[in-house]
Design a protein around this nucleic acid. Structure first.
Length: 270
DNA sequence: ATGGTAGACGCTCTA
């Protein structure tokens, strides 16, 4: 199974790029964030023409998440759906695809430290952990894919002077991420890039991509029965090049049908 | 200098 997560930063501005990318890579599942359109405005027909089912939970101007899949999605759930008043922002969609629970998540950015947006981010992450506890089983295959807006380690940050201590990289937000992972999820990307310094997002400003000053904030965290099947993970850097690119690159993960005899995860000592 | 750029919306917000 080829699984990809990509913050596309407006599906309207990047419709042609999306269609060409899908046609070229043909992943089994593509999770999108920041589509920035209502459901009716998603380019559904062009995706379906390429053989994809589209599950989209959008809103006007901001946010918006989607799951595109070659197999028909089952049990599609939008938002937290946890019995509390729903989050007004469209940041979560989930579906079961080929027996695997897929979640496409757009974590709040958090604005500035100490802001209302930052408090919303921490609350949102707590609520996500509670939702996982209430609905899912860590012993069943699940992939939490998306723009987490958190760089897990210092070496996931190119420019620590600017970003360490920010809403994307500080002890509290890393603690909130660790609490989510404590449900029973592991970062399946990092073991393939143990020295870090692999980025998934580069600020549009100050020539960050040209200087290769980015952060790794887009992730695929999986429960053990899925994590033991991972056989590769990479960032599609070329998609970030040139004009008209999203500020995020797609993050790709490949899973074997069954767990390999010598698992790549967790990494084996030499 | 609360900077720089990009997208959506409509002159301001979000990232």
């Amino acid at each position: 199974m080829d699984l990809v997560t990509w913050n596309i930063n407006s599906v309207r501005a990047r419709e042609d790029r999306l269609v060409h990318w899908l046609d070229h890579f043909q992943p089994d599942v593509l999770c999108l964030q920041e589509t920035k359109v209502v459901d009716e405005a998603f380019p559904r027909a062009r995706c379906e023409a390429l053989g994809y089912h589209v599950s989209h939970y959008g809103q006007k101007a901001y946010n918006g998440v989607a799951i595109l899949s070659r197999s028909e999605p089952e049990d599609v759930v939008c938002g937290f759906d946890d019995g509390q008043p729903e989050d007004e922002q469209s940041r979560l969609i989930g579906a079961r695809i080929d027996g695997v629970r897929i979640v496409s998540a757009y974590f709040p950015n958090g604005g500035r430290m100490g802001s209302d947006k930052y408090a919303y981010k921490l609350g949102w992450m707590k609520r996500l952990r509670a939702m996982l506890d209430a609905r899912f089983d860590p012993a069943a295959p699940l992939a939490l894919c998306g723009d987490y807006n958190v760089a897990p380690f210092p070496d996931d940050v190119a420019n620590p002077d600017v970003y360490e201590g920010s809403v994307l990289a500080n002890d509290d937000v890393r603690g909130a991420l660790a609490d989510i992972a404590d449900f029973g999820l592991v970062d399946v990307f990092r073991p393939f890039h143990p020295r870090g310094h692999v980025w998934s997002w580069w600020d549009y400003r100050a020539g960050s991509f040209q200087r290769d000053e980015g952060l790794r904030i887009d992730h695929v965290f999986c429960t053990a029965p899925l994590a033991e099947r991972v056989i590769g993970a990479s960032v599609d850097r070329p998609e970030r090049e040139g004009t008209g690119a999203s500020d995020h690159a797609p993050v790709r993960v490949r899973f074997a049908q069954r767990a390999p005899t010598s698992p790549l995860w967790p990494p084996q000592a030499p």
